[in-house]
Nucleic acid binder design. Structure first.
Lengths: 344, 344
DNA sequence: CTGAAAGCGCTAACAA
DNA sequence: TTGTTAGCGCTTTCAG
């Protein structure tokens, strides 16, 4: 609590300058490899730097400089979806000379929407040279730094974007269920403020229509992309007079919630209830039963985002929208409906 | 490329002050909720803030302030191990009023060791209030901010630490193979500059000794905790005149490398070769065959680290070392050695 | 070749 | 209640 008599611990450029008997300007030049410093002086400064363990403060230098070589990744939280993309980003960024800074602001209920704008303002312009924003909920305004959005709110007008084919993915998921013989197919919707959720519901409805199955609004509930909310949705669905024999959840986390409810009701998956997810996060393959889902190439999406952002930072023109294919991965959570003839 | 005629995009406190017709000091007070501002003035400022979309720059304010409410997480890269811990950190930090900033410096070969010191210097003191360092390779020196180390280089002397019982985990892994009937058990070592790798090797040797199996140095190779390096190790091991019937890899990634080599040699896992990993990252459960491994409670380790760091930040005393138990998870990559009598 | 000085955006004393 | 001033650590002209 008291003011420490000595220094506070962090060694600053001033400390180095004093110890080396030069000015801070000289130290700065040496540290940044600028010309115009005598070799002997430089050597002495470097020695002091090494001895004191000095590192230039990212904060202070970024305030003064225009470039920091730091790529910001803005996200709402480190969930399996985001971390999977992070893996791709990290793998692609290695060796390219950029540092990575993944930032998650303090999320609370009243800033669940619009967090990306706030984060971008807080970091942008000084700390980071550019940003990759994961799953923005709103249109990111023209920002002060280059931005690439992954799984964005909307596919056009805003910044460059990377996403996967949500509609076709949802169609494939629903079609798989239909091919299995299901007719009462429910959908646990994602976060309705996200474009991806809208598209997945659309794919679900299109696929139903293709098969001539009438759309029943009773079979669609909000799951908010979260396991906890999806359980409520699943409970409602399974309490229906004519309950579904299959549920297409808008993402894997929701699917886990659905399976949990099935378990608590004594329903076997897939014999009594088929479940399909979306995303194919690593946890999907190890769920019990292993989850049939639509795989998004999450890591590749991250890699592409980095490639695009670096191109932007280097002033190159890039394609503004990259869409990667999704793919049905059939595992063990889907089967023909109860009472159906056994598979041929 | 040309200098834009208007402003550069980012709106600063000066812009707000000018637009509201007040001084920057007043804006600062309003934005930070300080007392001593007339209600009407505050209202007007707030209006301008909302209209311009102003957010205080984390960089500038952190340079001046002592607290930022940001927790730094320092890591060498976003690999499955780190991201798993991140999930725990994020889950635990939500609602606690802290922002999270995961930072990975530009890693290259010449700074593979010592990156944590550099990162800490670059962020510490100003940007972040405290740090959680994942898998530091060296002893983190007494830092300018509170630090908690996860899976640290050494368990004592330095900062507060969280890890799991590496020795007992490695013993359990080896014992499992011995119980299956294996006698030629190899070990693909981790990064020898990391404490965990040392401890896992120690557990391996202890378990061998307990069973009266002589230690054969030929059966231990370096895998550096990386799949790519582990393949080399595995190739050497499987080219031995008297090759092992089982391999205990120091982490799951290495185990994947081992399984890849087995595949390319036409060896079936587990019939021809048993493989055990360590960590139980999500990918382990979905590998083919599903990987028997030692589970570390990675997410919980992250949670505990947050709890400890927040306690530290609030000036509370804490236990300096938390060790969580590891646990053997038997899946499909281990079986009795070829030619052994079938299981009873 | 070196250092003094200005200033990045912001906060915190202190004056007015 | 408000504004003026100093300064966080650093980089960058610009004189010396």
């Amino acid at each position: 609590m008291d003011n420490p008599p000595t220094t506070t611990g962090r060694v600053t450029i001033t400390d180095v300058a004093r110890a080396a008997g030069v000015s801070v300007a000289t130290v700065s030049k040496v540290v940044n490899g600028r010309y115009g410093v005598a070799a002997t002086t430089a050597e002495r400064v470097l020695e002091v730097v090494a001895h004191l363990g000095y590192e230039t403060s990212l904060v202070a230098s970024s305030l003064r400089r225009s470039r920091t070589n730091v790529i910001g990744i803005l996200l709402a939280g480190f969930d399996p979806f985001a971390t999977e993309i992070l893996k791709g980003i990290s793998a692609e960024a290695v060796g390219k000379g950029y540092e990575l800074l993944a930032y998650s602001g303090a999320i609370s209920d009243d800033n669940a929407v619009g967090w990306e704008r706030r984060s971008l303002s807080r970091l942008g312009g000084t700390l980071i040279d550019g940003a990759i924003i994961l799953t923005p909920t709103v249109n990111v305004p023209t920002a002060s730094v280059p931005v690439v959005a992954v799984d964005p709110h909307t596919g056009s007008g805003g910044p460059s974007t990377v996403d996967c084919d949500n509609i076709e993915g949802a169609r494939a998921a629903t079609r798989h269920l239909i091919d299995l013989g299901h007719r009462r197919i429910a959908h646990v919707r994602g976060r309705t403020d996200l474009e991806s959720a809208r598209l997945r519901e659309q794919g679900y409805r299109e696929s139903l229509e293709d098969a001539g199955i009438p759309y029943d609004p009773d079979l669609v509930r909000d799951g908010g992309y979260r396991a906890a909310w999806a359980t409520d949705a699943a409970r409602e669905l399974l309490s229906l007079d004519d309950p579904p024999t299959a549920i297409f959840a808008a993402n894997d986390l929701s699917a886990f919630g659905v399976m949990e409810v099935a378990r608590e009701r004594g329903l076997r998956v897939p014999q009594d209830l088929s479940v399909v997810g979306f995303d194919d996060i690593p946890e999907a393959a190890s769920a019990s039963p292993r989850l049939t889902t639509i795989a998004q190439p999450l890591q590749e999406m991250g890699m592409r985002a980095v490639t695009m952002l670096i191109a932007l930072l280097e002033g190159r023109r890039i394609e503004t929208h990259v869409q990667l294919p999704s793919q049905l991965v059939i595992r063990k959570s889907t089967a023909p409906p109860p009472g159906a003839a056994p598979e041929a």
